[in-house]
């Protein structure tokens, strides 16, 4: 009765073989192609779905001191509207009179609806195997509900304009012992670090390619990583202090990069090496 069975092991093995082939003296272009093949081979059965499922559960389940769910959380398109909401974030929220990105807004809702303290709501921004993050799961689910939506980050409000302008300056801010800024690696076309291609985030095409593919399940880490994680880890490599989670600089930089991606189809959660 059984016809064929493929095992995850076969996929893992294939991945290992791609890596090995890459190491034996091919030119750079074909190496990048092989890595792309590997990414495509992994698209089917993306473990990010496990985070999405957990996030949906967390969204709908009553929790916290107030024993309420997050289903009344307003992500910008009205209370409880999740579909397409991420493609229009960060944005200005009149109830708090400030611009918020998804993480900041989720933390806000966990305070107002769950009844957590702000410190509790932002206590664990990024997960690890032995310590999972509810934020990762919620972000995975909310972003998955924007899959296929067109990026349309608003800029009509003065505070949205301000966040974008500040984000742009933060992007070009050079500091630390290595004099790095975001622009050091992300302001030119067709460059790479080692073999990793670098998107030019100052241009629409590059920003679209990068922003619309986070969050991603990172195979090398076995974890779902959010766009906030990506920013956080870039600053670590920039030799900066740690970017505060849901901080104003984080929101501003996200606003700058998200708006540069306007017009593109949102594709995440994806899978990356």
């Amino acid at each position: 009765m059984r016809i064929r069975a493929w095992y995850a092991g076969a996929i893992a093995l294939a991945a290992g073989m791609v890596a090995a082939t890459a190491a034996v003296g091919q030119d750079a272009a074909s190496t990048a192609q092989e890595i792309e093949k590997y990414r495509q081979a992994l698209q089917d059965g993306n473990p990010a779905e496990l985070w999405e499922a957990r996030g949906e559960g967390l969204w709908k389940k009553p929790a916290g001191p107030k024993n309420a769910s997050l289903e009344k959380c307003d992500l910008g398109l009205g209370p409880g509207v999740v579909k397409g909401a991420y493609a229009q974030l960060p944005r200005y929220f009149a109830d708090v009179d400030r611009v918020m990105d998804l993480e900041t807004r989720l933390a806000h809702c966990r305070v107002t609806l769950h009844g957590l303290t702000p410190a509790q709501a932002t206590a664990r921004p990024f997960g690890s195997p032995d310590n999972r993050s509810d934020n990762d799961a919620l972000v995975a689910w909310v972003t998955s509900e924007s899959k296929g939506a067109t990026m349309n980050v608003p800029s009509a409000h003065a505070k949205e304009k301000e966040a974008f302008a500040l984000g742009e300056k933060i992007f070009y801010f050079r500091g630390g012992p290595y004099d790095f800024s975001c622009a050091t690696c992300h302001a030119a076309d067709n460059t790479r670090i080692r073999l990793q291609d670098l998107p030019n985030l100052t241009k629409q095409a590059g920003a679209q390619l990068a922003y619309t593919t986070w969050p991603a399940y990172r195979v090398s880490q076995g974890e779902l990583r959010t766009f906030q994680w990506r920013l956080n880890d870039c600053f670590r490599q920039q030799r900066f202090p740690e970017l505060g989670f849901a901080s104003d600089a984080s929101i501003a930089l996200t606003a700058f990069l998200a708006r540069n991606a306007n017009g593109a189809e949102f594709k995440a959660p994806t899978i990356k090496r």
């Binding site: 500040l166 300056k169 933060i170 801010f173 050079r174 500091g175 630390g176 012992p177 600053f235 030799r239 900066f240 202090p241 740690e242 970017l243 505060g244 901080s247 104003d248 600089a249 984080s250 501003a252």
Partner: peptide
């Protein structure tokens, strides 16, 4: 932007906030 960064970043390990002093 610089002022925003100084309130948004936190020192961690060997990376202190003076790294933001240009």
């Amino acid at each position: 932007a610089v002022e925003t960064m100084k309130t948004s970043f936190k020192e961690r390990g060997i990376a202190k906030l003076d790294r933001l002093d240009q």
